[in-house]
Amino acid sequence: MILFDFELERPDTAADAVALLGRLRGDARLLAGGTDLMPNMRAELVKPGVLVSLGAIAPEAPATLPDGSLRVDAFSRLADLERSGVVHARAPMLAESARAVGGNQVREMGTLGGNLCQESRCLYFNQRHDYQFAARCYKLGGERCYPFPTNKRDTCWSVYMSDVAPALVALGADVEILSEAGGRRIPVEELFTGSGLAPLALDGAELIRAAIVPAPAPRTGWAFHKSTVRGGLEFGMAVIAVTLALADDGKTCAGARIAVGAVRERPVRASAAERVLAGAVPEDARLAEAAAAAAKEVNPLPHHGFTKRYLMDNIRVHLRRTLARALERARGARG
């Protein structure tokens, strides 16, 4: 039960929604599926005075743009992405990452935009603070960090756990951002600040309107992996998304994009690992070398009971396997 009063607005258009956000400044929150926001309101991690519901605005169906890229409405439910034929054909990793989120009920309610804009998580943070950890932490405007007591006030190591974000990063996607001033388009990676205190680079009066996934280069393969304890209905221990393109010779790696989520304040690009692969023949040893490099550069934060050491080992092994699957797909992909 949410134990404070708030108002609810239901604008008919996205333009009205941003207008409302602009007018209410700070006191308002967008409500999409509510699967992240509602639990956080119940725990009083946020106490907005007004919720601006997107529920009256029907999402557009995913569509292919003239340049071959795929535009997906951010108000789409994750379950719709999972079921969409166009998404499966054009950006199957997006569908798979959507399917990795939570359980059926969460995906039927949860949206793409909400997934990207979800709050970062920490065991000490994600609970009511009536009698447990009652003194506020940095992220809640207080004076301490419970899990990392030596952290300074500008450092919060809560982790950003979206399953979809790493997939979009690996796909090289952009997001369309709408504000009263109009729209702008930025690479997904620029959506994130890298700070656990406020993980999103959105101003309170902006919303995400769409994600745009470019058409893949020829001979590109992809693979996605979510490490978990029970295989579902669970945030990831680590989330791995990769795309890998082969050169004309069908042997050399033309380039790879590797993103690792759930282990830092933002989805992390493993650029050093990408460089290990680019221009090389991705034999097993190469993939292993890249995976080892990635585990190191990602530098996972211990979170949700997992140690840094184990997370590194887990990422190293699963990234190597994920790269191998992507490579296989690249070999089978159209040239």
Binding site: N126, Q127, Q132, V229, R230, G231, G232, L233
Partner: peptide, 28 residues
Amino acid sequence: AFMEEVMTKDGYTLNPNWLDYRMPTIHN
């Protein structure tokens, strides 16, 4: 055996919810 643990620190409970206290699902 493999999943569930109430995590605590100094007498406070770290995972007081179904997401972080992992009971098996039907798939397990």
